[in-house]
Design a binder for these strands. Structure first.
Lengths: 219, 219
DNA sequence: GAATTCACTTTGATTAATCAAAGTATGAGG
DNA sequence: CCTCATACTTTGATTAATCAAAGTGAATTC
């Protein structure tokens, strides 16, 4: 049975690979996202290769094998179903569920997970708007645009918020930047690195480009 | 933050102490219940002492300190609330919840636990009939008699089943030996090491003394 | 094309938890 | 009181995961 650490590495590698739309994931992104030193990532990745979860080319990066991808998907499913449970059933706030789910995902059994899935009515998306992989490991991929890619005058719908940072999630919620919201881009100020938005009929406000990149939308 | 291992040692020591009605717990029971070698228990217990969770006297045993008892109670609370959730909400079987809860109890946060408690309606007993410690670490102690202590002709009510072994729990459930059931002791056969029981209006059946000792009752 | 920088790898050490096996104290029986 | 078994303790080794710091290869810059 793989350790929580193994599960975390595989989940994280999978997520980077999904986000970047590339099969090969460089070591730097792995050590950054797992908050370990580069040396730790290197030695861990070598073990993961020995155990058949991925293949590793020195100074190139890693590629998940079929079993590595499968396990990664499974952990992602756990994570997103748990987040859904925490919000839908227990009423926790959107901004505080990530760390909770991060812990629980490693100890919930397959059996309990499937019961939970039934109990929740087999949701397809988690509270952030991210798709939940199926039991079979299939994930629906939206090639999402971020708010940053949108031009002045466009009106778009939020698909998901692509960040786990608490303060950012609180900010997003406060401004009604939640999946499903319709937003109009009033203006883009390339020099100021900010854009002015209007959510529904609320007062307009501004958001920096860095933050805008975290908000994924569909036209 | 204490590791899962530390939490398990403290929970187990607390449970032994509650069951035996003694403050001092011998090393042998600790290593047995945690399924580690005696040497492992000795070295672990020394660390626990260094960290202030308990006091240890060589070849005598251990006593929990106030903080050790508090943490132990907290883990016991987690365990029993989780078992309740697994049965009540997700509909798992009585006989399969122990190991699940054993895993989850170390990763659920205080916050989620209290939400769960609310969601479940602040239950006082878990599905086995064991009392759930309060948030403040108070546990209601029944000085339970076991079925083994009962005489021929008595009618008693089941309080709890004092075993986690799957097959035994399945057997108990099949025979309606569940908390709340009323049982009449039809006969005791000291020589055969068995007693004949009648649960409600069902057909009588026999149960060995060893099994009878695991069924705690009140008159 | 040499120097520098960045990204990564290697090395050596540490920590928590464990086991096997050898050693020792204590209490019970002769 | 001596012996012995039982119950524990000690010792030495192992494993997974980590870090700090030193080393190296590849790309960028001059």
């Amino acid at each position: 049975m793989p350790s929580p650490t193994v599960e975390n590495y595989l989940k994280q590698i999978l997520m980077i690979s999904l986000e970047s739309h590339k099969r090969e994931v460089p070591m730097g992104l792995i050590s950054d996202s797992l908050k370990v030193t580069p040396g730790t990532a290197t030695s861990m990745v070598k073990n993961l290769e020995k155990e058949g979860w991925l293949s590793y080319k020195s100074r190139k990066g890693v590629k998940l094998t079929a079993s590595g991808r499968k396990l990664g998907m499974n952990i992602l499913r756990r994570h997103r179903l748990l987040e859904t449970f925490l919000v839908e059933t227990l009423g926790l706030d959107w901004s505080e569920i990530h760390d909770e789910a991060e812990e629980l995902e490693h100890s919930i059994s397959e059996k309990v997970l499937e019961r939970l899935d039934d109990f929740l009515g087999r949701p397809r998306h988690d509270p952030h708007g991210h798709p939940i992989p199926t039991k079979g490991g299939i994930i629906q991929i939206h090639k999402n645009r971020s708010l940053l890619d949108c031009k002045e005058g466009m009106t778009v719908t939020i698909e998901s918020i692509d960040d786990q940072e608490k303060n950012f999630l609180k900010f997003a919620r406060a401004k009604h930047l939640v999946p499903g919201s319709k937003i109009k881009i009033l203006s883009r100020e390339e020099v100021a690195n900010a854009m002015e938005l209007k959510v529904g009929k609320r007062n307009p406000f501004s958001i920096g480009f860095q933050a805008a990149a975290k908000i994924l939308v569909s036209a």
